[in-house]
Simulated scan of single mutants.
Amino acid sequence: MDMATMLEPLALLLAGLLALGMVRLGALQYGLVAPHDAEAVPLLHVLAAGTGLAGGIALLLSMPDLTAFLPTRIFTNDSPWSVTLGGILGGYALPRLVTLRSLVAALGGDGGLAQVAAGWIAVAGLLAGAVLATRLWHGRDRVRAIAAFVLLAVWTALILHYAAHLAVWMMTQLNFWLFAVALVLFQHWRYRAPSSGH
């Protein structure tokens, strides 16, 4: 067993821990920036998460090579996901400049229908969050509410972007084991005892 094979589980663990760290850091920043009574307005949190979700989808749809997510490319010998932990972090942890440019172009109407729609839903969510914060808070609390909203939306979009890439990269790393686990789960489902419903 070579050194690279021995380090694979550690790389998978570190990549997963980074995703959890992003979630924790985003929640911590939101809690520090948001007004003290923000928890009484769950709509602010929900709207920010929804806006970030739309933004993350828009980022994924703005990638220059969406075909990399197809199963026919994930498990091939020349898979774009056959990279090291450094490769996944350096190339996919944050959106690349070409992805951001494509997203900006989509907001101008230059893109697929889903990409344009997701981008504009994210923009509409940002505007709605600013209006909500403006109506419910005043003075410094208003600025804090808007900043917390934007922070949570951005973190949600970045986490979704990274998580999608991480999931596909992990599938590539696990390759054989993924199919073995899927086969065991299928056999368990196939031969399970029928439920006795009333």
Results as ranks from 00 to 15, higher is better:
V123A: 08
V116A: 03
H198K: 08
A105Q: 11
L13K: 13
L103R: 06
V123W: 03
I121W: 00
L107F: 03
Q187C: 07
V33I: 15
W169S: 05
V131S: 05
L25N: 15
V150W: 01
G112P: 04
A148H: 09
G129V: 02
T84E: 06
L174M: 12
S195E: 15
M171F: 12
L166M: 11
A180N: 02
F69M: 04
V184G: 01
V46H: 03
A182M: 10
F69W: 04
V150L: 09
A105N: 10
V46N: 00
G91N: 15
H161M: 11
L60R: 05
A68T: 03
A153F: 05
L113Y: 13
D65K: 04
P71G: 06
L183Y: 10
R101L: 11
V143S: 04
H188F: 11
A118E: 08
F176I: 07
G86Y: 05
R192P: 09
G109A: 11
G108D: 02
L183K: 08
A167M: 04
A38E: 10
T67R: 09
V104G: 06
L151K: 08
L60K: 00
A180S: 04
I74R: 11
L126M: 04
L166W: 14
A40D: 11
L44N: 06
L25T: 15
L183I: 02
G119Q: 10
M1Y: 11
A164E: 03
I121V: 14
R192K: 13
L94N: 13
G129S: 01
Q187R: 13
A54I: 06
P9S: 11
R135F: 10
S62I: 02
D110K: 13
T67A: 08
I146Q: 05
L127F: 13
L18F: 15
R73K: 05
H36M: 12
G111T: 05
L132V: 05
T156H: 01
E39T: 07
